[in-house]
Design a protein around this nucleic acid. Structure first.
Length: 872
RNA sequence: GGGUGUGUAGCUCAGAGGGAGAGCGCUUCCCUCACACGGAAGAGGCCACAGGUUCGAUCCCUGUCACACCCACCA
């Protein structure tokens, strides 16, 4: 242990802790000493980071994610486990490509003008830049992840894993290519998976349009998308619909187009909706596509990749919006438009650019999910993968049990190229882990690779094992797979969590992680989502700059209650910056009073010592249990309340008395040091920087490597009435405040009754110090001019003052105490008079109530007699 | 159309089957020898509403209302 003379006085003399100086220094030291790398220990703990997208710097939601992971990582490391938290970033296909397209767009260029290679070069530069920025941010948050194992989804090794998985699934027949109705984003120019569509409610209109029948008469259909009528190849009605019975089998003539199409009958048509007659456009609507297949209808595409009309005629080249207007106006003037009604419905949008998605038939690659999903359902049902909070399990299972095939090809440049080569001669597909130079069927060298890339989430799905070296059988893979925990947000349960479980089971034959902690969404203080357009985002860089990383971490941990979103008010950070400072100053106090003291066995403890040591034991247990069950907010609250509410507010104050007593001084120093030491350990996962800084001024080694505290049975002591001591002190202060006595004025305290505070403790001094009393004494009788401060069944405590005594005030005081106690007594008595209660309530509850009643009864008697005497 | 979550002090939120808590804000006092990023004393709540279960419910059940969110192929 370092002596007082060795302390860095400049730091400790500062009134305020300066995180901006301390934090980078400690991060560097931890990193240089290799503390973030796993070291053999008692069991292992491993976790992979949800790789942030390189599209942007991190926001406060990421900060929450990082902090929650680091709290657990540091806790597990201190518990002595071989601990690995593996960091990395995601290439984020569509999102990144969009950013680069926009960026070069500002310079007036398109990606086609730039060319494939140049475009990728620019994107890689961006990726490098943002990887560094993100890394710096994660570091500034204090994250103790092992940077020597950092991975990027486009790393060469990870790309190999991607290829191996693709080839393997292809050979098993689980990856296939085919023409299906898919979601097309006309702005991003690529297909999207179902999960990448966000449905939004839109106020729109539904149009009733009259289609003449070839055989005479007409039929009115209802549609929200009149522009697609160019591609209509049927009109459908419900076979049970009496209104349309006669026209089934007849032919409708599409207005403006003149195409003659059949009127067909299909159960799908809802008779109650619209007019009960449906126009069928197999090329541009998923339902119509199904109907089309069933009835063998012609498929006529009328929109191109940019959602412009491609159908020959007057509308060709118009955007879908303009085409709608033009067609409606033409319909109207030709008398086909029967009616327009307001109509709200939900429309799918691209999750990256928010453009309305266009349903379209396209030739794409898919993963067949049904068989892969089955084991992934089972492991969750069997509890091999547990969700926290549990309710997310249902969300996961619902999705898994109704899973659809996963469209994995994307018409992008940025990403993993699909490892498929087409033979120009024989048409064979060569699917290979390594680039082939000839067709594996006919040997032709005229082959070309599929131009598309894979969905970003395809590589993310492999993250828990690809980052550990798979497909090579590395030491890391053997040691750290399966990982123990995944911490992520609910918004990517389908995108990511589900697919990792699927891929882990398929390729590692084991779950990728045992626990999934789903954390909250961080919203603004009004409960709104943080977004660029609202400008209500909170930048973690700024928060760290202003309040320090420790304050930010503690704030987020305190708010991280399971199962609820966090409405974050920036003022919260200030509270916990104050807490950081409180820790700093309390440590300062301990430091000043424990020069040249070493922690060793302590004997001759006082009631204050015994109380704080008992409390510490309880808190150690509570914090540990809370962390084991990922109750971050509970753990953080426990240590916060203990350190500030118990240690600072009471023990340190009482220690001032004990330090002045030569007989008690040394023990008190021991207890101060010990409690501080254990507290620093409990604080460290939440506030690593300040705790390490303080630790370095007291103790050898690094706190990051210290042992996690365990309870000490010898430090459990039975209740000695410390609560009543606190109550007495509060009561005396209350008298002061009630009578407006200045704090400087001296008062005298008199204790009447049978006191059961332990004789080995200077409780008179405790009281006099904490209430600034002239004297604290005992008496047999209530003093004449005494104000009642505290009462229990055996003892009354009075504040005696001759000149300030206020008869009326004392009457009021006593009366209010009596009213309160009487009310309490009445309630307890009513309960205890209820025979049902006595019969059915658990014995200990009854026992407790009886005890309380008798205590209050005695207290009441005391109060009554005091009041009587006063009035004499 | 299904499903989930939430409704507790002015604000942001904890909480447990036995009679309600924190932080911030507010009022009053104090720069007392760790800390004014502090200390002390207070005010402030039919724990959304209505039923039910229970000896007892703010906590469990049912329904209602409000606010979020997720899923689903309503043209």
């Amino acid at each position: 242990m370092k002596g007082g003379s060795g302390l860095r006085a400049t730091l400790f003399l500062d009134k305020f802790y300066l995180p901006q100086e301390s934090e980078p220094k400690w991060y560097k030291r931890w990193e240089e000493n290799g503390f973030f790398a796993p070291h053999p220990g008692n069991g292992k703990f491993s976790m992979v980071i949800p790789p942030p997208n390189i599209t942007n710097v991190l926001h406060v939601g990421h900060a929450l994610n990082i902090v929650l992971q680091d709290v657990i990582t540091r806790y597990q490391r201190m518990k002595g486990k071989e601990t690995l938290w593996l960091p990395g970033e995601d290439h984020a296909g569509i999102a990144t490509q969009n950013i680069i397209v926009k960026k070069i767009g500002l310079e007036g260029k398109t990606k086609e003008e730039l060319g494939y290679n140049e475009f990728l070069k620019i994107t890689w530069e961006w990726a490098q830049e943002y990887k560094e920025k993100i890394k710096d941010q994660i570091k500034s948050m204090g994250a103790s992840c092992d940077w020597s194992r950092e991975r990027f989804t486009l790393d060469e090794k990870l790309s190999k894993a991607v290829r191996k998985v693709f080839v393997s699934l292809y050979k098993k027949g689980l990856i296939y290519k085919g023409k299906y109705m898919i979601n097309w984003c006309p702005s991003c120019g690529t297909v999207l998976s179902n999960e990448e569509i966000e449905y939004e409610n839109e106020h729109s209109e539904i149009y009733h349009i009259r289609y003449p029948l070839q055989e005479g008469g007409d039929v009115v259909i209802a549609t929200t998308r009149p522009e697609t009528m160019l591609g209509d190849t049927a009109v459908a009605v419900n076979p049970k619909d009496e209104r349309y019975k006669d026209i089934i089998g007849k032919h409708a003539i599409i207005p403006l187009v003149g195409r003659v199409v059949p009127v067909i009958a299909d159960d799908y048509v809802d008779m109650t909706f619209g007019t009960g007659a449906l126009k069928v456009t197999p090329a541009h609507d998923p339902n119509d596509f199904e109907i089309g297949k069933k009835h063998n209808l012609e498929v006529i595409e009328v929109l191109d990749d940019k959602a412009r009309i491609s159908f020959e005629g007057p509308y060709k080249g118009l955007s879908r919006e303009k085409a709608r207007k033009a067609i409606l106006s033409d319909l109207k003037s030709a008398g086909y438009l029967v009616k327009v009604e307001k109509y709200d419905h939900s429309v799918g949008h691209c999750y990256r650019c928010h453009t309305p998605v266009e349903p379209k038939i396209s030739d794409q690659w898919f993963v067949s999910m049904k068989s892969l999903a089955e084991p992934a359902i089972q492991v969750v049902k069997d509890g091999k993968v547990k969700f926290h909070p549990e309710r997310w399990e249902k969300v996961y299972l619902n999705w898994m049990e109704d899973i659809h095939d996963w469209c994995i090809s994307r018409q992008l440049w940025w990403g993993h190229r699909i490892p498929v080569w087409y033979c120009d001669d024989c048409g064979h597909l060569t699917v290979s882990e390594t680039d082939p130079d000839k067709c594996e069927a006919c040997g032709s060298t005229h082959i070309h690779q599929d131009p598309d890339v894979l969905d970003t989430w395809f590589s993310s799905a492999l993250w828990p094992f690809s980052t550990l070296g798979w497909p090579e059988e590395t030491e890391d893979l053997k040691k750290f797979y399966p990982t123990d925990l995944l911490v992520t947000g609910f918004d990517i349960i389908f995108f990511w969590v589900a697919r990792m479980i699927i891929m882990g089971l398929e390729f590692m034959d084991d779950v990728p992680f045992h626990d999934v902690y789903i954390h909250q969404l961080v919203r603004d203080k009004f409960g709104r989502k943080m977004s660029k357009s609202l400008g209500n985002g909170i930048d973690p860089n700024e928060v760290i700059q202003k309040y320090g990383a420790d304050a930010m971490r503690m704030t987020l941990a305190m708010l991280a209650a399971q199962g609820r979103d966090i409405n974050l008010d920036e003022r919260a950070f200030e509270s916990y910056r104050h807490f950081v400072n409180k820790i700093w100053n309390a440590s300062h106090f301990v430091e000043m009073n424990t020069t040249n003291v070493k922690i060793q066995n302590v004997q001759g403890l006082t009631m204050a010592d015994r109380w704080i040591l008992s409390r510490l034991n309880v808190v150690i247990n509570n914090v540990t249990n809370a962390l084991e069950s990922y109750d971050y907010n509970i753990a953080a609250h426990e240590i916060y309340d203990f350190f500030w509410g118990d240690f600072c507010d009471w023990y340190i104050e009482l220690s001032k008395v004990q330090l002045e007593d030569p007989k008690l001084r040394e023990n008190t120093q021991q207890v101060l040091l010990y409690v501080l030491q254990q507290s620093l350990k409990l604080l460290h996962p939440f506030m690593p920087f300040v705790s390490e800084e303080i630790w370095s001024n007291f103790f050898d080694g690094f706190l990051i490597n210290a042992n996690w505290p365990v309870e000490r049975p010898e430090f459990y002591f039975q209740d000695e009435g410390f609560d009543f001591l606190m109550e007495a002190i509060r009561g005396i202060r209350n008298v002061r405040s009630d009578l407006d006595l200045p704090p400087s004025s001296k008062i005298n305290v008199v204790i009447v009754g049978k006191l059961d505070w332990p004789k080995d403790s200077p409780f008179e001094l405790y009281i006099s110090k904490l209430v600034n009393a002239e004297s604290v004494g005992t008496a047999r009788m209530k003093p004449k001019k005494g104000m009642t401060a505290a009462v229990n069944p055996n003892v009354e405590i009075f504040v005696v003052m001759d000149e300030h005594f206020d008869f009326n005030a004392e009457i009021v005081r006593l009366n209010s105490k009596i009213v309160k106690a009487a009310e309490e007594f009445r309630k307890l008595d009513a309960r205890l008079s209820n025979e049902e209660f006595l019969k059915k309530a658990s014995p200990d509850v009854v026992e407790k109530a009886k005890n309380e009643r008798s205590e209050i009864e005695k207290t009441l008697k005391r109060l009554d007699s005091t009041l009587r005497k006063l009035k004499e």
